[in-house]
């Protein structure tokens, strides 16, 4: 799958360039996240705005990506589309992650 990274105001923005994070790509996603965030900022913003669909395997992979960062680094989520937002809300994972409706809001948070 395709992840791209940029830096903004002390955070690393990782964009998921895929329409779905599902069972077929969950393991790849977790490995790519590890490679992408191996060294870098303490705060990582995962830009999900292109992801139209996520299943429980994809959700598990995002949780795994957060856990492999360790306690001193943080994974925030930005731009969830309606179905992605719904899966996070139903599983109550929206209480574990900081979810920002847009990438801009997530980045602005870094400055304050």
């Amino acid at each position: 799958m395709s992840l791209t990274s940029t830096r903004a105001d002390g955070a690393q923005i990782v964009t998921v360039n895929a329409e779905r994070i599902d069972a077929a790509m969950a393991i790849q996603f977790k490995e790519d996240m590890r490679a992408e965030t191996e060294d870098g900022t303490d705060r990582i913003i995962l830009d999900l705005s292109l992801v139209q669909f996520i299943d429980s395997s994809g959700l598990g992979a995002i949780v795994a990506a957060m856990k492999q960062l360790g306690r001193d680094r943080r994974l925030d989520l930005a731009g969830p589309t309606p179905m992605v937002e719904k899966v996070f809300r139903l599983t109550r994972m929206d209480t574990i992650f900081n979810l920002y409706s847009t990438l801009n809001e997530a980045v602005t948070e870094t400055k304050t």
Binding site: S56, S57, L59, G60, A61, V63, A64, M66, K67, R71, V87, L90, T91, R92, M93, T95, I96
Partner: peptide, 20 residues
């Protein structure tokens, strides 16, 4: 529903399917 009450290290990475 999955149990999210523990520390980060113990957060579930699966078991959400039937609940959903």
């Amino acid at each position: 529903p999955a149990d999210l009450s523990g520390p980060i290290e113990t957060l579930p990475e699966g078991g959400f399917g039937w609940f959903l």
